[in-house]
């Protein structure tokens, strides 16, 4: 029972872990290059949750200097994740751009089809 309680209390971590594994699975299992990138994005996003979870304090607000608030969330993880999101966007954008070029060059974005063509070429 205690174990179950433990599980439920850390549900946000479990969600993060689930998203992470699901993302990785898509990257590995899918042959479609766009879907791979979607998986990759999912994988990256899960990490954002890992950062944000410990940074958030229930009932806390943004760290504004004011007498009305005494409980603040830690701003640093949020800032870090803002940066990470930017990096993530750049990565996905570059990845998608590459997929467009691959489609132009090979006429397909399915990995197995491309590898077949590559053997012929």
């Amino acid at each position: 029972m205690a174990a179950l309680q433990e599980l439920v209390n850390h549900y946000n971590h479990w969600i993060a872990v689930f998203l992470m594994v699901a993302g990785l699975y898509v990257v590995v299992a899918r042959g479609n290059m766009v879907k791979k990138l979607v998986g990759l994005s999912l994988f990256q996003t899960s990490v954002y949750l890992i950062y944000l979870t410990p940074g958030k304090i229930i009932g806390g607000t943004a760290p504004i200097l004011s007498d009305e608030f005494t409980v603040y969330s830690n701003p640093l993880p949020h800032v870090l994740i803002l940066t990470a999101i930017v990096v993530g966007i750049a990565t996905i954008a570059l990845g998608l751009a590459l997929v467009v070029r691959i489609n132009e060059a090979f006429g397909s974005i399915e990995e197995d089809e491309i590898f077949e063509k590559d053997v012929e070429a």
């Binding site: 570059l94 590459l98 691959i102 060059a105 590559d118």
Partner: peptide, 8 residues
């Protein structure tokens, strides 16, 4: 292109 994608 493929190499870059894989590396990415």
């Amino acid at each position: 292109l493929l190499a870059a994608y894989q590396y990415l």
